[in-house]
């Protein structure tokens, strides 16, 4: 149940790829991909460490919208639990 949160490639040098998502930067492996990556590409990670797929920019934007929605729902749940505990 690993979520397909899009990550953006921000650095490539000396065979090392750095991706970023919501301010978090991660160094990842890309050995599974056949196609080359460029800075600005969106990718999907496995266990925050391995690129498992490249993602079209439009698909990535739609996915980011979805996961923002989930973030808001998570925050709502947490808030209602806090309210319940405080009551």
């Amino acid at each position: 149940m690993c979520l397909a949160i899009p990550s953006k490639v921000v650095e490539i040098h000396d065979g090392m790829v750095i991706v970023e998502r919501f301010g978090e930067r991660l160094e990842v492996t890309t050995g599974l991909l056949v196609e080359p990556l460029a800075v600005g590409d969106y990718v999907v990670l496995r266990a925050r460490a391995h690129v498992v797929a490249k993602m079209e920019p439009q698909t990535a934007r739609e996915a980011l919208t979805l996961f923002n929605e989930l973030a808001e729902k998570l925050a709502d749940d947490l808030e209602s639990k806090s309210d319940h505990e405080a009551a």
Partner: peptide, 11 residues
């Protein structure tokens, strides 16, 4: 409450 979920918290 002041709880807040981050995107890291989503995954």
């Amino acid at each position: 409450g002041s709880a807040r979920a981050t995107i890291g918290g989503i995954e």
